[in-house]
Design a protein around this nucleic acid. Structure first.
Length: 218
DNA sequence: CTCCCGATAT
DNA sequence: ATATCAGGAG
């Protein structure tokens, strides 16, 4: 596990690598962001961003999503995958926005997770990106990077990973660090082919060292 | 735990 | 061919 000094170095290095890391899902308000994050489950941001321009042009309000048959919405998001459950969740989400939240995306995480298709991770993205409040959304990249570098234990659940990060990172840096970890995971510490040989954190990375030994043995 | 699921990279 | 992608619901 990383000690305090190593954690500071990791945060500094990631800041140097990705000083302007931010949400890459195209959106222009909290409603669009929530829909985009819901759609992004098990799909790449790049693919979601190909679909949302026409989607957001057609559907501008919760009422718009409820005005079409479910099958039509399914076809409009089909390319993203998991389209049947996502379409159903979007309509359920819009229904409860109108019925329970005055048509607005709620700001509290406890309220956000009541929305269909919105779990803790999506709620954290919305609170952080749309409402500018400190949060660490643990997605596949944040989980992988945290475990490879040693912010947490390998067997930790995503909730345990989030708690470990919140404990070890100053609250004022949660949102920036969270986005930098995503960029680091997405573009450098990739799932299939991580760039360990050119990684500035290799000397303190337990997974990187493991991979080095393995490569040397070949 | 399984299921949902198409697009893309390897 | 297989792994992975800003997960969540049942």
């Amino acid at each position: 596990m990383l000690n305090r000094t190593q954690i500071k170095e990791v945060l500094n290095t990631m800041e140097n690598m990705y000083p302007d890391a931010e949400c890459e899902l195209t959106h222009s308000n909290s409603f669009e962001l929530t829909i985009a994050v819901l759609l992004s489950a098990q799909a790449t941001d790049a693919l979601v961003n190909k679909v949302t321009p026409s989607l957001f042009a057609k559907y501008k309000s919760p009422e718009d999503y409820l005005a079409v048959p479910l099958e039509e919405l399914e076809q409009d998001i089909r390319r993203i995958g998991l389209f049947r459950s996502k379409a159903k969740n979007i309509q359920k989400l819009c229904r409860s926005l109108i019925d329970d939240f005055n048509g607005e995306i709620p700001r509290e995480r406890d309220e956000l997770v009541k929305l269909a298709g919105v779990g803790r991770k999506t709620a954290n993205v919305v609170t952080s990106v749309a409402f500018g409040r400190p949060a660490i959304a643990v997605d596949t990249h944040v989980e992988r990077v945290s475990k490879r570098l040693g912010f947490c234990r390998w067997k930790d659940s995503v909730l345990e990973v989030e708690k470990a990060l919140m404990k070890k990172i100053p609250e004022a840096e949660w949102s920036d660090t969270h986005h930098r970890m995503i960029f680091f995971g997405r573009y450098h510490c990739k799932a299939q082919k991580p760039a360990c040989t050119e990684c500035p954190l290799l000397h303190l990375c337990r997974e990187g060292k493991k991979r080095e030994k393995k490569a040397a043995a070949q």
